[in-house]
Structures are given as structure tokens and as C-alpha cells.
């Protein structure tokens, strides 16, 4: 198939950036979106033009490194799909495709379509862990965990930290990410000891990183390649309120 690509180019963090239009021919419908981008870059190289920078790594939908806003949708229009798993058979010959970086103040552009998502790491560093010293662990079966709880924790833990939730949110809120990470640990018995501090610190860091506020649209969950549920946001809201109230009395 032949396509017209309208791609965001930005030479560096300080550049204001603009769109560039490229035509690409003979794209296989079996190729992934990123393989189509590879093909475009090879084409640019042949003409001596520097290729378009974009983040990618595992190309099997798990590392969370790929991003891209495709026709306005984070990771493209398909549900439950990362950009690397989006295949060109979902597009039609002659389509015009707009490709932009994930846009948010907390995700500054590094170059072209590459953005800096280190604010997510800071949220984790604020409390997205269980303090378990290596070597100090009791036997794995010492605490039985109901299957249902383990499954729910796993649903949240499936988050790949790609940032599509932020990119798809009109307010660039990181609530789905933060709530999934906090929710995973807060659902497990091992996570109870640090639960209140975790929730308060993660939310504080999230606020300080320049993300917007959750307005309960649900766009984040709709864009999430791992289908993380809005329930985790509700749970974070609840856990945060409880922790705040407990703090008032202690």
C-alpha cells in the first residue's frame, strides 16, 4: 500500500518543531507500524536525510518503550495495542497518517518523536516498591494470598509504563499509571506496611512532576495497551483519602 505520512520533526528539546510530509510506497500489510517507520527511515537515508528518531525496543508489546500518537490516538486507533504491535493491515491504501510524539509537559520532547518519560521513574522512586532487603524474605508460601487478590494485583502490575495514559488524557494526568503501580502493591499483604506512605509520596511526586488532574473521562484506560481498569484510580483515590485522614489523627 502507499501512504502519506505527516510526521513531527523537532531537532531538540528547545526547538519548537513542525510537521513534515513524506510519501511512502509499497508498504507490506504484514509489517508492523514501526517496521513501516523503518522503511521510511531507509528511504530518507537513501536521499541523505537524517532519519526520524522514535523510541522502540522489544517490538513485542511488553517493554513499553515505543510511543507515538497516531492520528490522534496514543499507540494508534486499535484497542489494547502498542505501536509496535499495530500492523499495517489496519490501514488502507492511500491513507494520510499523522504521527506525533506523546504530548505532555511532564514528557518533554528529546528529539522528533522521542520524549523523556523519566518522571514515571521518579513516581516509582517515591514509593513504588516494597522494602524487602535481599536475603531477608520468608518462604514464598509463608503468606497465602487469595487467588483473586493475586489476580487483581497482576492486572495492575501488567502496566508497561509506556505513558499512553498520559498522552491520551486531555489533561496529561498520570493517574492511571500511578494508580496501577500503587494498586499492585497495595492489594498484596506484603505491601500493607508501607501502604499509606506509598500512596501519599507517589501522589505528591506525581503532582510535582507537572502532570494534570484526573477528570474521570476514562480516555487513559481506553488507550491503555494493557487495559488497566479505572478501578485502580478509584482505589488510589480511596487509599489516598484514608491515608490523609489517618494522618490527621496521628
Amino acid at each position: 500500500m502507499n501512504l502519506t505520512l505527516k510526521v513531527w520533526r523537532q531537532s531538540g528539546p528547545k526547538d519548537s518543531g513542525q510537521f513534515e510530509t513524506h510519501l511512502i510506497e509499497e508498504v507490506s500489510e504484514d509489517s508492523s507500524f514501526l517496521e513501516m517507520m523503518d522503511q521510511l527511515n531507509e528511504q530518507l537515508l537513501e536521499n541523505g536525510i537524517e532519519p526520524i528518531a522514535f523510541d522502540h525496543d522489544c517490538r513485542e508489546g511488553i517493554c513499553g518503550m515505543c510511543s507515538l500518537t497516531i492520528n490522534g490516538f496514543a499507540h494508534g486507533p486499535e484497542d489494547s495495542t502498542t505501536t509496535c504491535q499495530l500492523h499495517m493491515r489496519k490501514f488502507n491504501d492511500g491513507d494520510i497518517i499523522t504521527i506525533e510524539p506523546f504530548r505532555a509537559r511532564a514528557f518533554p520532547v528529546v528529539r522528533d518523536l522521542v520524549v523523556d518519560r523519566s518522571s514515571f521513574d521518579k513516581i516509582i522512586q517515591a514509593g513504588g516498591f516494597i522494602s524487602a532487603r535481599t536475603g531477608s524474605a520468608p518462604d514464598g508460601n509463608a503468606i497465602p494470598i487469595p487467588k483473586e487478590d493475586a489476580d487483581k494485583a497482576m492486572d495492575a502490575a501488567a502496566c508497561i509504563g509506556c505513558g499512553a495514559c498520559v498522552a491520551s488524557c486531555k489533561n496529561a494526568s498520570a493517574m492511571l499509571f500511578t494508580s496501577a503501580k500503587a494498586g499492585h502493591l497495595n492489594l498484596l499483604p506484603q505491601g500493607q506496611a508501607e501502604k499509606d506512605a506509598r500512596v501519599l509520596n507517589m501522589v505528591k511526586t506525581m503532582d510535582e512532576s507537572g502532570f494534570g488532574n484526573c477528570r474521570n473521562y476514562g480516555e487513559c484506560s481506553a488507550a491503555c495497551p494493557k487495559d488497566i481498569s479505572l478501578d485502580y484510580i478509584a482505589k488510589l483515590n480511596r487509599d489516598h483519602a484514608k491515608a490523609k485522614i489517618k494522618n490527621l489523627f496521628s
Binding site: 516494597i130 508460601n141 497465602p144 487469595p146 487467588k147 493475586a150
Partner: peptide, 22 residues
Amino acid sequence: VNIIDQCVAQGVPFAREYGGLL
């Protein structure tokens, strides 16, 4: 054997049986 213990302590959500064991 220590690895499993360590990972469980960190909150790795391993699959469980209905009785709650790994």
C-alpha cells in the same frame, strides 16, 4: 529457592492456586 522467596517479598504477583499458595 531463595529467588522465589525474594521475589514474593517484593510483591511479584506469581500465579496462585485457590488456596492462596504458589
